[in-house]
């Protein structure tokens, strides 16, 4: 067994184990942290496949930004785990059956028979001066220009949708809002500070 293969199996094992933990942990924070581990081992496998740029992007974007944001949301929201898990045991047998059937089918197709090394020999390793980022950039802005622009439009729609669905202008006492123009107009003196005499408490 070559060193490469050992590294591959090591990270794959961590990946599968942490992915299982993501869906079985009771505490959503633990799930999110295991997801970070899953992404990280996935990045290591990509690195092994000589996709260095993608591996780094996965760590930077997913682990660094998306998951931190996700953890933040999980901590802010009061998620009732009990209701989320309700019916888990009841649906487990059916779920397992479906999973098993799909696993066997996928294994038959994606297994060594169809995607073995004899069908898809591993490509020759790239030269030492080969630049992953550069070659990606070269096609991204030329051959895939149309798709690149479309992805930008999708992000724009996501922004519009998110703001459209969450921005609320409420009036009255329902929500306390800042009014910057009034804040700026405040003058020194009694306008700004109000001293209140209070009884000392013990």
């Amino acid at each position: 067994m070559t060193f490469e293969l050992i590294v591959f199996y090591l990270f794959s094992a961590i990946l599968v184990a942490s992915a299982t933990m993501v869906i079985t942990r009771r505490n959503p924070v633990h799930s999110a942290l295991f997801l970070v581990l899953a992404f990280f081992s996935c990045a290591a496998i990509w690195m092994l496949a000589e996709a260095e740029f993608l591996a780094i992007v996965l760590v930077l974007v997913y682990v660094g930004a998306v998951m931190v944001l996700f953890l933040f949301v999980v901590m802010m929201l009061d998620i009732d785990v009990a209701t989320m898990k309700a019916g888990f045991i009841r649906y487990l047998p059916v779920g397992l059956l479906v999973t098993l059937a799909m696993l066997i089918e996928i294994f038959l197709v994606v297994g060594a028979d169809n995607f073995g090394l004899d069908k898809f020999p591993s490509p020759a390793p790239a030269a030492a001066d080969y630049n992953n980022t550069e070659s990606l950039g070269n096609v991204l802005y030329t051959a895939y220009m149309y798709q690149f622009e479309l992805a930008a439009v999708i992000l724009l729609v996501a922004i519009i949708a998110a703001i459209g669905l969450t921005l609320r202008k409420r009036s009255g006492t329902e929500v306390r809002q800042q009014d910057p123009s009034r804040q700026v107009k405040v003058k020194k003196g009694p306008d700004r500070v109000r001293l209140v005499k209070m009884e000392a408490q013990d």
């Binding site: 479309l150 992805a151 439009v153 999708i154 729609v157 949708a161």
Partner: peptide, 13 residues
């Protein structure tokens, strides 16, 4: 796929 997602995302909203 990108066209489909653009359509779907607008429709979800």
């Amino acid at each position: 796929y990108l066209g489909l997602e653009l359509l779907a995302l607008s429709l979800y909203a």
